[in-house]
Amino acid sequence: MMKSTQQLEQQLKRHSKAAKLEIWGKVVSFSALILIVAVVVGIIGFVASKGLATFFTNHVSLWDFLSGKSWNPGVTDANGKPEVGALPMIMGSFLITVLSAIVATPFAIGTAVFMNEISPNKGAKILQPVTELLVGIPSVVYGFIGLSVVVPATRAIFGGSGFGILSGTCVLFVMILPTVTSMSVDALRAVPRYYREASLALGATQWQTIYKVVLRAATPGLMTAVVFGMARAFGEALAVQMVIGNAALMPGSLVDPSSTLTSVLTTGIGNTVMGSLQNNALWSLALVLLLMSLVFNLIVRLIGRKGRLQ
């Protein structure tokens, strides 16, 4: 009797194959996860170290970089300082982001409301695939269409070259529209049914219900959607670069050739020598881009937290 108990205990305490597999699986899957984290840390670390070299190695002042209006890293100005004013590109990036978000938001939210509140049937059958397809179109294709349709149209209407912030805005508007739309749909979907039913039962019209109840309840989610769209617009490189004209000048008007952080980066990095000031200055632009991407992330988090508190 005692013997069999001991035997059983031994059997039950033996490290089984399953237990070994368990440890193995945990280690393997955790390594994969850590690899991804290492990539993130690596990207931020590398870009930061390169981007900061402008300030620490080349002793450019941060203020000159952020507020200077002329970008010509190969040239030194009257005071013997290199011309690394990034303001034109920073302005360009912000302008184009804000403008495209302003245009896209009403369309995106309108479409989302249509899909979720007015005609869920048509929404699921037509608009859902439409937004999914729009998301799927590659950005170079948007850029190419911008180049062959939007730029000539702008030229015909406003004169000039047609390249500039306006064309960029048009292209980005279409590019971020599906992203903002589908996230807005998610936000609206998260509003409980009984909100609508309660409002309709009180005699409100459908529009009043949408406007006063649904949209209000979904506000944090809708804001998140718009911020996501802006992050996408801010980071978009090739489509914008193809239609903006790539002149590193302060944007005089919406139809003058201008530039963004991404457009200068894509055209510039290949034409500079690693380690040179010209090259480091471009990495500083990349760093600004990266920091802005972190800021957008933070904003999304803050909105999420506030939304939860309510």
């Binding site: 108990t5 059983l8 205990e9 059997q11 039950l12 033996r14 490290h15 399953a18 237990a19 368990e22």
Partner: peptide
């Protein structure tokens, strides 16, 4: 369980 405490950490739960 048959005289063995299976609620100890050292027990191999998969076998158990």
């Amino acid at each position: 369980y048959r005289g063995v405490d299976i609620n100890q950490p050292s027990i191999d739960v998969y076998e158990m």
